[in-house]
């Protein structure tokens, strides 16, 4: 979710007959819900796919700080400011848990960051949309983190131990994010007509980008099959999207806001809401780098990294000097 269009490092799905003895044992473990741990044997493609997915997930957490950080200094009250600071700090922590989990597979954090900065790895498309006003901050917490929770709750059951444990920890913290967002939306929606209008506008603009977070339709998601067999992915894109829609509509109704999509209708037969597709051309365009904020987001990340270089180097030099002095003293 925070991971979209992850290319599985293997095309199609490998049948049992085509597996080596080792791979068959590996698949048996996965089928029996036994977690794979860092030093266990695993197919190279499993490792590569996981690094891509966890890396993209980590990058999303970190880049996701930017649209919200944008409003920290302009939060309407001191309390909202403290809450937003705590949330943005959580995102940094989530990025770190995920980088750490990816590192257990032998890829360093610096290398993953380098790939992001060179444009060779991605982050979720959602963060290429701007946060234009305070209502957007409420809507991001509610919808974007809400969508993230749907995905991440499923991923708690993912087959790779360190990834699963990171997800469990993240989910605990993430529900604070969604609730603080919805709380901010309640204030706006139940406030003055002007505030309500802002809340409606934020919902309208962020609804479809939030839907895109789950990635393309299962029928167009060609890489999913092997990832599902490996339980790197646990639920399909369409399943997760439906779950998100079903849980969010009553929340919109409670706020007294208009539904952001005319296609939303309860389908008695399916027991789910019907809804319209987001604009998939727009989605692909944002993924390709042409969203409203792609350039700014990456520039900000690269600048933060480059401007922090002297701090990282300085602290390392200090640590080396201290270690050397300690050896000399002994």
């Amino acid at each position: 979710m925070y991971a979209q269009l992850i290319k599985t490092a293997r095309s199609g799905i490998t049948s049992r007959e085509d597996m080596s003895e080792q791979e068959r044992e590996f698949q048996d473990k996965i089928d029996n819900d036994i977690k794979i741990e860092p030093r266990d044997w695993m197919p190279d493609d499993y490792r590569a796919t996981l690094i891509r997915q966890m890396g993209q997930h980590a990058h999303s957490e970190v880049v996701g700080q930017l649209p919200e950080g944008n409003w920290i200094t302009r939060a309407p009250t001191l309390e909202r400011k403290a809450i937003l600071l705590a949330k943005v700090q959580d995102e940094a922590g989530h990025g770190l848990y995920l980088y750490s989990a990816a590192e257990t597979l032998g890829e360093t954090r610096d290398e993953l960051v380098r790939l992001l900065h060179e444009g060779r790895m991605k982050y979720s498309s959602i963060f290429n949309y701007p946060t234009l006003n305070w209502a957007d901050i409420g809507a991001v917490g509610w919808l974007v983190d809400g969508a993230a929770i749907v995905n991440q709750v499923a991923l708690q059951r993912t087959s790779y131990g360190p990834y699963s444990r990171a997800m469990i920890r993240i989910c605990k913290e993430e529900s604070f994010h969604a609730r603080q967002g919805y709380h901010a939306m309640m204030k706006m929606a139940f406030g003055s007509p002007a505030q309500k209008k802002m809340a409606q506008d934020a919902l309208n603009r962020l609804w479809f980008p939030a839907m895109m977070m789950f990635g393309p339709h299962d029928s167009d998601s060609t890489h999913s099959e092997q990832s599902m067999a490996w339980k790197i992915k646990v639920k399909s894109n369409d399943e997760l999207r439906q779950q998100f829609v079903d849980q969010t509509i009553p929340q919109i109704e409670y706020l007294g806001l208009d539904l952001p999509d005319e296609g939303i209708k309860w389908n008695e037969e399916r027991g789910h809401y019907d809804f319209s597709d987001p604009d998939w051309d727009e989605f692909m365009d944002v993924i390709r780098g042409n969203g409203p904020c792609n350039v700014d987001r990456l520039n900000d990340r690269v600048a933060a990294w480059d401007n922090g270089q002297w701090v990282r180097d300085g602290l390392m030099a200090h640590a080396r000097k201290k270690a050397a002095a300690k050896v000399a003293a002994e």
Binding site: L96, S100, L315, H318
Partner: peptide, 19 residues
């Protein structure tokens, strides 16, 4: 509980507190 990067033990403890 997990891991993190730090230049030395003192910073590792400070970062662990935050994370």
């Amino acid at each position: 509980v997990g891991s993190l990067h730090a230049p030395d033990a003192e910073m590792a403890i400070k970062n662990a507190r935050d994370v």
